[in-house]
Design a protein around this nucleic acid. Structure first.
Lengths: 162, 162
DNA sequence: CAAAAAGGGTGTAGGACTGCAACTATGACG
DNA sequence: CGTCATAGTTGCAGTCCTACACCCTTTTTG
């Protein structure tokens, strides 16, 4: 995990990858914990659906099924449960009367916000232990990485992790 | 997502948190994609069990149930399926004849390796697009972050993400 | 206007996870 | 040796995800 290299040479892509894989474990662990807090009330597909609605806004059933990667019929029944839990709302929009528009209900938004807040809080707790130099470095470094990551086809939502 | 701040001042912990949350999305997305590749053959709890066995080595049913956070009876039947898929092995160790020792089978190790490899490959692909300075910065910055994260109680495995 | 396409919902069926309760076998302790 | 604890399994019951096939309604299109 700790690549031994001459500190005066530029790190190879693979070495940087090593560092990112390690950080990935930490960050994914944090994400997992934030999610574990709502486990029991919400299944993973249900959470994925909420995240997607929070990101992309109101949507019809087909688009959601496509985004979450499930069969339309599965999406219908998944929405049944989310509606029953009052986390989303179904409505019949004007225009195309075949469509059903799914909207995140206040309770649904609250859950998403809670998970995000927990994640943020935990990360902030870690960052608080770093000095100013380290903080500045992280900001610059991760900014560049996020930019690079952002250039990829955005199917990172495949599993609904935010 | 891009906190506007004076570039000459030290970033606040919260600003660093912002950057990490953004990077977190990217990294978690990568982890999710690596996992999605084996979806269909393996459920999430099954994957979590494999990861745990890969990390901690051979284990009995109770410890695995505890680690993955499921009921012992659930663990028994989860193991039934993993054994049937030839991803793990059950054996009766000498000594305590009540215990059952679970071992990762070669096919199970292969799956873990495949997921890890995919994740690494995708991260490396991103890093390849960065220049030497950025790489060096990421190495330093993430090293410090990982150190800070490592000081936390290690329950990041709660959901079995590696 | 009739046929095809699109958007969703139902019926049906199966697999997986979940926990509780009861049971077997084994080990530890007095 | 008898009792209690431990490790694991099995029976049972419920929820959820999953897909396929089929149906209804609405819209588009020739």
């Amino acid at each position: 995990m700790s690549p031994k290299r001459a500190t005066n040479t530029a790190p190879t892509p693979h070495e940087v990858g090593q560092a990112l894989v390690v950080a990935s474990r930490a960050l994914v662990g944090i994400a997992a914990r934030s999610l574990a807090a709502i486990e029991g009330e919400l299944t993973l597909p249900q959470y994925r659906a909420l995240v997607w609605l929070a990101e992309r806004g109101p949507s019809n059933v087909g688009a959601l099924a496509d985004a979450v990667g499930i069969h339309p019929s599965t999406a219908t029944r998944l929405c049944d449960r989310l509606v029953h839990k009052r986390l989303i709302r179904r409505s019949n929009p004007p225009g195309d009367r075949r469509e059903v528009v799914l909207t995140l209900a206040p309770a649904g938004e609250a859950i998403i916000a809670q998970v995000t807040r927990m994640r943020h809080a935990e990360i902030d707790r870690l960052v608080a232990g770093l000095d100013a130099t380290a903080r500045a470095e992280i900001i610059r470094a991760l900014g560049r990485f996020a930019d690079a990551a952002g250039e990829l086809p955005d199917d990172a939502w495949q599993l609904g992790w935010s």
